[in-house]
């Protein structure tokens, strides 16, 4: 069981990486005034056939040999238990888009907790992937694009601790500026 939604986002993005994506777009929208939280993860990976896509929410269904087949079903359950829903759209050879909606103030909605931690792991764990992240919270927005960030931050400097520190600082301060973590 995943206890917070930022872990589900990490799981979705890792799925995208395993599907051969070169670009992963992560959109989070916390809209308290409309009572809605939405999460959308899109990738340009290999995509799924109609049959695989139709079965993607079946528990334990997987196309891999060593996977649980529980990631999407658990997220779908988390969305449904908070009065929301989850949709998966995919085109073979073009990519996949997973969108989940949650009633913002529902008592059973899992907390988002730490999107900064999730993005730090993704960006530093897969520098070859261009992560485009946009987080809106009640009208304020934070954007981060990993390849553009690397191009700016790494010019002439060594990778390693300095880069880790800079990624952390940028993501944490950016999310703090819109009132989240």
């Amino acid at each position: 069981m995943m206890e917070d939604l930022s872990l589900h986002v990490l799981d979705l993005a890792e799925n995208a990486v395993n599907a051969g994506a070169t670009r992963v777009v992560i959109l989070i929208n916390e809209n308290a005034s409309r009572g809605l939280l939405t999460i959308r993860v899109s990738d340009d990976g290999r995509g799924m056939t109609e049959e695989v896509c139709r079965r993607a929410l079946d528990p334990f269904f997987t196309t891999g040999q060593k996977r649980t087949g529980l990631g999407l079903p658990l997220l779908a359950q988390a969305a449904r238990q908070s009065g929301g829903d989850l949709t998966v759209r995919s085109t073979p050879g073009k990519g996949t888009r997973v969108a989940a909606r949650f009633r913002f103030r529902h008592i059973d909605r899992q907390p988002l907790t730490s999107m900064a931690e999730t993005m730090i792991m993704l960006v530093l764990g897969h520098p070859e992937i261009d992560f485009r992240y946009r987080h809106r919270r009640d009208g304020r927005a934070f954007r981060f694009a990993s390849h553009a960030f690397f191009a700016r931050s790494c010019e002439g400097s060594a990778a390693g601790p300095e880069l880790i520190r800079e990624v952390r600082r940028t993501l944490r301060s950016g999310l703090e500026s819109i009132g989240t973590t």
Binding site: M1, M2, L7, L10, D11, E14, K66, R67, T68, L70, G71, L74, E117, T118, I120, M121, G125
Partner: peptide, 17 residues
């Protein structure tokens, strides 16, 4: 760091952190 659904649910993000 193994970040399958099982790994993430078991705390892999904290390990990588």
């Amino acid at each position: 760091v193994h970040m399958g659904t099982c790994g993430i649910a078991a705390g892999a993000r904290g390990i990588m952190d």
